[in-house]
Design a protein around this nucleic acid. Sequence first.
RNA 1: GGAGUUGUAGCUCAGUUGGUUAGAGCGCUGCAUUGACAUUGCAGAGGUCACAGGUUCGAGUCCUGUCAGCUCCACCA
Length: 755
Amino acid sequence: MDKIYNHKKVEEKIYKMWEKNRYFIPKTDPSASHSTLRDEPSGSDSKSSGQAKKPFSIILPPPNANAPLHFGHAMYVAEDILIRYHRMKGDSTLWLPGSDHAGFETQFVFEKKLEKEGKSRFDFDRETLYKMILDYVLENKKGMQNQLKRLGFSLDWSRNKFTLDEDIIKIVYKTFKKMYDDGLIYRGERLVNYCTKCGTSFSDLEVNHKEQKDPLYYLRYGPFILATVRPETKFGDTAVAVNPKDKRYKEWIGKEIEVKGVIGKFKVKVIGDEAIDPNFGTGVAKVTPAHDLKDFEIGLRHNLRRIQVIDFDGRLNKHAGKYQGLRVKEARKRVAEDMEKMGLIEKIDYEYTHVIEVCYKCTTTIEPMLLPQWFIKMEPLSKPAIEVVKKGKIKIYPKKFEKIYFQFLENIRDWNISRQIVWGIRIPAWFCSECHPERSEGSLDSSVSPQNDKNKKWIITDGEKPEKCPRCGSKDLKQDPDTFDTWFSSSQWPFATLKTTKPGDYEYFYPTSVMETGYDILRWWVARMIMVGLYATSKIPFENVVLHGLVNDPLGKKMSKSRGNIVNPLELVDQYGADAVRFALVFGTAFGNDQSLSYPKLQSARNFTNKLWNMGRFIEMKKKDVILSAVKDLDSSALPQNDIKKLLKIAKTQNDKKIIKKTEELIEAITNDLEKYDFNHAAERLYDFAWHEFADKYIEDVKSRIDKDSFLILNSLFLILLKLLHPIMPFVTEEIYQRFNFGQSLMIDSWPKNE
RNA sequence: GGAGUUGUAGCUCAGUUGGUUAGAGCGCUGCAUUGACAUUGCAGAGGUCACAGGUUCGAGUCCUGUCAGCUCCACCA
């Protein structure tokens, strides 16, 4: 054995050995009776194997396939710890890998790449663009999978899935169709970021913010004076709002007022809404639900009409009367001038600065525009999801996150699942061009006027294109150009994967045992998996939710591409070894809390791997000494002993007995820690015991008096220690195990237990 | 603006349902050791537990408020 543990010589070799021996594949693979392919764990009794026993399963949260993993992903080590622990306990254990197409984000990343090449999405048709992104993603996936392997993750690669696999898409379609048939899907309007120059809508990611100075007009508005920067949207006003607590206007709430305007008089209602800041302007605001995000929300709450006055070409429409046809900027100027002439402007504040949204491509001001979108009614789904956690059918660890979960579900809003991008699963909805020819289709966005959509009869299928229109028989059917929100497909991940891996998987492994992921996606992903899982399968998707904290950079700042502080886990694996990286991640921070990447911690974890290595070296050396003393039955007695009671019998000194008892306590404690997902305590306890009890005290004590019996104790306890450490530090423990010829492989050896 | 979360040694963090003298690692100081390991061992210094109240026989722990950091959500008409 080398004097210093060299992870570079060990890790790749060991991982290949595990993979080759199919140790990552569940012992009881329901699809084939090949459980004899490898031996049972040496310590487990035959009763514990077979279908009857409950399996242990985890679905890996599929990382986005658009970029290499960052260091935060290495936190999935918590899952590997659980998986390895249960595998050693003798459970049939499955950890299923996969990756996510990550709609928005991937398309955004890809377009950045196009931009560098001097191109843009508008240079390609839909099919070409999709194909290009797909190639890009498939290439990325490989690197990502390599990263997971380098971390030592014992994932069953024979069951690897991707959210855009044909069979996954089929299931997503089926769920959508079922929801539609059950009346959970409806067509509703929503404001999107729209660039009238590019002629398309953008995601929030694609919108830039810019501070600029604009005149703030104080308009005479019926009996009120109110401040606005957008007098040109006045034609779309359907209410005037004040804060309900504002004494100045309290008595007006609920009344209708008459307003004199540049194209005649009109009437609007006064409403009270908390969103209105009494301290801004005069404390009165006009409400234009069709062209302002906040007003849209107010409109939803008060059931206001939405009048679209700006069209998709950026010009005012018929609602603007004589201003029809003018562009927004020009219209604003003209309306303001005319109002001034009519004496409708109280004053103008030219010093007002605010933040506006501009198109990241052409810097045109973004217009919030109404677009028809598909929505899911969430209340029927959220209620059962609240129930299962309240009743304890699904448990959330650490418990503090339950609060966030309930808060989200109790205030849930309907879910808009339409996205105006090509990269994703296209929505299986068609309409007939004969019955409803008014819709113009063709571009990547879905620029339709919402008025047309209301009477449109959509044909929803589970993926197949309908042959003809069920009403007029026309074969000229057009598919909705939109794609599903990525979370819509990932909300189905636990059952969609297991239904499409191997026959019997779903029946055997679903619901899965644990869903482990970062707390930051508890709402976006975990809550939705519970809701959609319950809906589609009538079962909970998993029994336990375990949430880890975020890994920030060494200064405590969130790692992000824009900050440029992303750390690739492979760099650290190269430098410190996978075991050290894994150990450092769970050591020294309460599980579920955020931590900062700490190089000193990595270093001390690396030193710990070396300490273990040298404990092994010492024992190997002593073994030779003891064998050299030429006692006949030494070979068999040098084999480690699983039965701790027997060890106690041969213990001669108080120190022997003490260390055996402490090991017994350790087994109990570590087992409890892992059952409670208390990873940091397990790691801390193991570190402290291995280093400061076993090495500093016991080895030092036994060093000078080693004989046959004390060697047996030493050797046996060391094997137990290796087993307890293996889930966290699989490589160095396995390497020592192999060198000592303790058995076939540590990863399928038995978990220590006290009788 | 709303919500969540954190504040404990120079640094990074533990501290279970309140219960003796508040712990660990790194760093620091001193000593030792070249026969497992210098990626080592032994010993030591270092804390008004953010602040102010309250409950209690007793508070790092429970309650209220204040301040600061971080995260998420919504966003200034």
